[in-house]
Amino acid sequence: MRMSCCAGLVAVSIAMRAVGAQDSLRFVGGDATTSREVQQIIEAAAAQGLPAGLILSKARFAVAVHTPGPKIVETAKSMATRLVVAQRAIAPHAQESDLAGAEAALSYDVPVEILRRISSASPKEPIAVPLGVLTQLVADRVPAKRAAEIVTDLLRRGATLTQIAELGNNVDADVKIGGYRALDAANMRYNGLGPHLAPLSAAAAANEPGLTSSSGPKKP
């Protein structure tokens, strides 16, 4: 009796998990060919252990903004490729939100090396927020190198995720509401945080010469 109960419980649980997984990763949108091809990409990504839900999400966004089918498929493929690169770049970080942040950064052409630096600057903490701020700074046209310097420096000096997120949101508001240049706004906001953070240790500064700048890049 106990054996059959146990076996029944396991069977039902496995069946429900399988149904749930299929349901939660099902893409319906665009024409039949697009749906099928995107679904194949999602399933292949899931089989590789990638967070395939991110591809599903992007495909649904694409449908919501009326993207043509072939473009949706192409985007899903690019995203799957970027997820593989992101997974390697930020290991051992493996949270879906960290991978989403790394993948988004790659989509804005942030070099893989920068992702590695951010990952190693915060090896035990989630990096979705620093990566998100990095991505947003780059999306606002702050050069990737300077954006990476700011974010990595904040991490090494013990800035909280709230402070880092605030910097990102403030720069966004400076650009959108104030009409300021993103690079100037980023440097100003970064300098404003400086007094509230620990100084960069000599060892860290020696390892990362680009991080010692507290006033932003020198203008020619």
Binding site: M16, R17, G20, A21, L25, A46, A52, G53
Partner: peptide
């Protein structure tokens, strides 16, 4: 299983 189907991804 039904309640947690969205939170557990078997793949």
């Amino acid at each position: 299983g039904f309640l947690f189907r969205g939170t557990v991804r078997s793949p």
